[in-house]
Design a protein around this nucleic acid. Structure first.
Lengths: 192, 192
DNA sequence: AGATCCATGTAAGACGTTACATGATTTG
DNA sequence: CAAATCATGTAACGTCTTACATGGATCT
């Protein structure tokens, strides 16, 4: 699916596809490693959804893949069919659920980092949007990304004080929780 | 990690943990199947991070797990350590990237569905927030979720017209792309 | 009585990443 | 000349989901 998507726009080698995904506006939304790209391309070629052409450019052996009409039809048919649920895995948000139990300095650092990450992502999308002309679909997705990222940033900036206040005040060298909430028989800190 | 998180708030059986995750405000953010929960609990018990107690309530054999001080320390230490990157997998956004090539009716339906999903999620968070008292961390995460979801909804409503206009106008029974963009030798539609 | 819920666990399989193995070419 | 980049692929490993196997209890 991913490889087919990459080949909708142009012909490419496995290596090219990896680069495209890294540089694309949608990092974190879409990515794949060589270990999945190469087998996927081989399978797609086998099924007739892509065509391979070897190119010995300057002595290198390079396999250039291109979508076939069957591949295109299959791809669009799949996209138009029922889609799986979306999934958002955020270790940051997961950690924030327990901000009350974490040292304040760490909570601050995590939020700082998240703000920086989201700012960078907005920046990256902006830059890419300025560079290449995009179709309506891409503009739509990029715009949606920017809108939600901005809303997230805004929320983080406005509400961070509340969580940070609730976090554990004592720096306490490393990981020794200062107030145990309500555990029967839980008193010994156990450093390691 | 997930199981430890669930056991931060209360004692529970594997079954209970699954239910908690399903009913928690963070569906899509956090989930796990029995196939991963039970082995995880066994491993954690083996490592001394949780304690097991069998309870033959009404003849049923039920294993109730509770966090140990070691487990608690381990959990908080991990959360305070370096966190992996966040990942957002959205088949919807992925499909929208190619909205220009999809039938307009399908694009409309997908956006309608996404709006409904996000509305439901906001509703679910609101309801849960009203029911149970939460710590600062949970309120923070819930608030952030609502803020970004609302921004997303707002964006979808304001900009959907643009993508829908760019999508393929001809309904054309099923999956036959009406305008091939620029593929050398791509003329035969190939229904299947 | 039959369906549904409570409850645990195993096995098979899908999927994806990391690391390894290899080698040419370009750049500093 | 060394380092980075281009380029492909395999193998090991981990993680998770699905499906299966099992059985008591509760509800209709």
């Amino acid at each position: 699916m991913l490889c087919l998507a990459a080949l909708m726009g142009r012909e490419a080698s496995g290596y090219d596809i990896k680069k495209d995904l890294e540089k694309g506006s949608a990092t974190g939304l879409i990515d794949a490693s060589f270990g999945s790209i190469y087998p996927a391309l081989a399978r797609l070629a086998n099924e007739g959804f892509v065509a391979v052409r070897s190119e010995g450019a300057r002595g290198r052996d390079k396999k250039i893949y291109a979508m076939t009409p069957e591949g295109r039809a299959y791809f669009l048919r799949t996209l138009a069919g029922p889609l799986p649920d979306e999934k958002y895995r955020s270790p940051f948000l997961f950690a924030m659920l327990f901000a009350d139990e974490l040292p304040r300095a760490r909570v601050r650092a995590m939020i700082d980092r998240q703000i920086a990450l989201w700012e960078d992502k907005i920046q990256a999308i902006d830059t890419l949007t300025g560079q290449q002309p995009a179709c309506a679909g891409e503009n739509f997705v990029n715009g949606l990304g920017i809108a939600t990222l901005k809303a997230g940033l805004d929320y983080l900036r406005r509400h961070r004080a509340a969580v940070e206040k609730a976090a554990q005040g004592e720096p306490s060298p490393v990981g020794a929780p200062s107030s145990q909430t309500s555990y029967p028989g839980a008193a010994a800190p156990a450093a390691e």
